[in-house]
Amino acid sequence: MSIEAHVTTFILVMFPIYILAFILYAIRALKGPTIPDTVLAIDAMTYDLAAFLVVLAIFFRSPVLTPVAIVLALWVYALDIYVAKYLEAKEMGG
């Protein structure tokens, strides 16, 4: 068995498990009782999505797809900081 066939089979096995994890994260993000729960679920889902995108770039054999993960990780951090700043500014009264 060559390296190429081995890696392809491995990623094909990992594919449905990742999708299952994303569906569970999305259920928590959709029904989260409070605001921080939803933001936390979106955060965890998107960081894992960034990891999955790099694995998929190996699977599709196209290295151009890789830099998307950097952009995704950085902008979701920005969303996190926006919401935290909004929640905290309401307490300070500003």
Binding site: I35, P36, Y47, A73, L74, Y77, D80, I81, A84, E88
Partner: peptide, 18 residues
């Protein structure tokens, strides 16, 4: 980034009692 974001979120959630 991930621990920094989680920490900021936890601090905001505690202080605003969300």
């Amino acid at each position: 980034l991930a621990p920094a974001g989680s920490h900021a979120l936890a601090r905001a959630a505690y202080r605003s009692r969300a």
